[in-house]
């Protein structure tokens, strides 16, 4: 009888550890994923939450006209900035000042 109890206790303990492991594993990784893709002879980005697209930028945000990012690095930089805002529950709006601060090239189509 004692052995049976010990066995059940052991199984229970393992189950609890497994649950905790998976929960912490889930919460430690970001809910958001980013994908940078080529578009219109430049690059855009897509931000998804739990595999559902939330924001899709074929073009650089905030500025007039339809201008894609000139290179993957620029697209990645702004996408990461948007994700960090979303994770911090800040409006994911990109301002023209932020484009300048991050030295985003705005005129490679010309």
């Amino acid at each position: 009888m004692k052995n049976v109890l010990k066995f059940a206790f052991g199984i229970g303990l393992i189950a609890i550890i497994v649950v905790i492991f998976f929960q912490t594993n889930e919460s430690s990784s970001s809910d958001y994923t980013t994908r940078v893709y080529p578009v219109n002879s430049g690059f855009g980005y897509e931000i998804s939450i739990h595999n559902k697209v939330l924001i899709k930028q074929d073009n650089i945000p905030a500025i007039q006209n339809e201008i894609p990012f000139c290179n993957e690095d620029n697209a990645n930089t702004i996408a990461s900035l948007v994700v960090s805002k979303l994770e911090n529950k800040i409006a994911p709006t990109i301002s023209k000042a932020e484009l300048k601060e991050n030295k985003i090239i705005l005129n490679c189509l010309n």
Binding site: V53, D58, I63, P92
Partner: peptide, 18 residues
């Protein structure tokens, strides 16, 4: 001043020109 497009068919957002 920020301005957004909501893609109704795709249920996602795009930031447009301020």
């Amino acid at each position: 001043v920020d301005f957004w497009q909501y893609n109704i068919a795709g249920d996602y957002w795009v930031q447009k020109a301020d």
